[in-house]
Design a protein around this nucleic acid. Sequence first.
DNA 1: CTGTTAGCGCATTCAC
DNA 2: GTGAATGCGCTAACAG
Lengths: 352, 352
Amino acid sequence: MRPTVHDIAAAAGVSLATVDRVLNLRPGVRAATREKVEQAIEQIGFVRDVAAANLAKSRVYPFIFILPSGDNSFMRGLETEIRAAIDRSVFERTQISIVTVPAFDGPALANALDQARLSHPAGVAVVAVDSPEVAAAVNRLRTDNIPVVTLVSDLAGSARDHFAGIDNAAAGRTAAGLMGRFLRGRPGPIAILAGSMLVRDHRERLEGFRSLIETEFPGRMILPVLEGHDDPVEAERLVGQALKSHPDIAGIYSLGAGNRGLIAALKAHQSGASVIAHELTPHTRKALKDGLIDAVLNQDAGHEVRSAIRVLKAKADGQAVLSAQERIRIDIFLKDNLPFDDAAPASEGDDI
Amino acid sequence: MRPTVHDIAAAAGVSLATVDRVLNLRPGVRAATREKVEQAIEQIGFVRDVAAANLAKSRVYPFIFILPSGDNSFMRGLETEIRAAIDRSVFERTQISIVTVPAFDGPALANALDQARLSHPAGVAVVAVDSPEVAAAVNRLRTDNIPVVTLVSDLAGSARDHFAGIDNAAAGRTAAGLMGRFLRGRPGPIAILAGSMLVRDHRERLEGFRSLIETEFPGRMILPVLEGHDDPVEAERLVGQALKSHPDIAGIYSLGAGNRGLIAALKAHQSGASVIAHELTPHTRKALKDGLIDAVLNQDAGHEVRSAIRVLKAKADGQAVLSAQERIRIDIFLKDNLPFDDAAPASEGDDI
DNA sequence: CTGTTAGCGCATTCAC
DNA sequence: GTGAATGCGCTAACAG
């Protein structure tokens, strides 16, 4: 039988209440007594039963998820997954609210974070814009001892507890490795379509892609980055222009969103370029099937949401996280290994 | 406040014990009373607090994991992950034992399953050999109401509750899609190294690979399958022979284990073939880095083990499983997106 | 057939 | 500072 608080109490010659005070770092215990109890805990190898503790506390975890608003398939899919988590909240003792803010807007996001702080949540998950004011707002949350997990895109120079997202540099390198192999024997430059250099995930993918092409496939030219702000209209215009002025483009790496525009441009220009994009959405799925896109790198929004919740809970309880379980993997989809064949539902992803 | 058993009792005008009997489908309740209670449950929207129930029951889950013995890096990695789960068992209320049986040996496996049945476990996870006697043994477990999850390789015609493994047909197609693209413009046949057609995962990968090559890359010849029984020595001999008699081999798909032998043969013959293999082990990792293997498809043993445990628990409690969470993904590794750079530890993988 | 009662392991009043 | 008592939501004897 695994030892309980009673065993500690007996071993230390104190009462349950005192044991509890020591366990939960509450004041009102003499140093000597505390010492005794801690020794007992150590000696009998006590591990607290979190389930029982939560039961006794009737613990619920109020969490706040902050993500960009707007017409971005991936982000809306993410929101769908958060809503799915809300449906499970009765079972999981969570109580999740969703806040949306304009994309790529640091001040607005910082403001939303400060707002969130006022409601004293048990944790906050945020799709970060990589700016100092956002980092400062995150740090204010941390000062209040509120756990913060960045979601999808990370935040430099902040005290965030955890990042629930893929290794974006590795994603960029993966895209480059595939692209280099796909283009073997075919000359021509590579075009890159990004969303914004204000978000860390896009910057890291770009860096990873570039560095690998330069070292492993030297001589392959990369055109100046097209920054389409994840907007389909802008993306279509930029890619269209590029295809017009560089008819010899052999490959295109779309590392952000706005893929609807990319796809439209590809169709219009009958480009034969090898194309690699991110995120499996209804649009990229169709383009894969139609042969317009060769490969899609995907991050599973459902897994990210579930992971964020698990980590926030663990942090809120001062528990360790199973890091292997929380690593978000980079899925690679070709036309031929798409999950479920029917019309793509909003929740593409999966997990675990 | 979420409703409790007390609320049901009050609403139905009965005692806690009766509510409990209805909830747990125990006998000793008049049909009319049962009806009343069920109505109350329905009306107030009761959902049982599993954590509290487990606490009251001091529930522990005795599980048995059965896997092949022998010198197979992937299977030994799987065992390591099971041992990691054993380390967590105090927290997870599990009590896991490991049984190993000779690989590809249906009768031995069936015997081990029958043996497992005698100890009345709360669930069994098994790396299946796809044979009728194994299916029969699994069905005997199911008759005793013991949940069974197949692990890594599935079992046809059995009543197993769940399969914790990748979609192997999709894996084969993925390998074919990559291979076809890698070989663009290069003639020459493809060689296939398999372990044994007695296990379902190998058969499914082969089928998926073959069908996609035939439909998407017609004209690409596939040589007769080499069956190496996951044995490095045999694999080396078979691949060596093939490379000697077909010096024009353009691609090799290794869909089973025994990759040490494959790698040795590749080195010895200075083959320039594009190679795709399964499972990231210290050997395949090194071969990737050395450029001997182009891509590795991997299944995460850690994720599979954790998933199997979650599913067995859920089935044992008659609970629903979050199917999205339990889907095991196919990881694709190139030389340039390998996880952690240091010397590969036994536990490569990770998760959902 | 049905109800009463005493825990499961922990947290939290309220006395002392 | 410390302890005794009560309850979280559910299960499981044991009575009736």
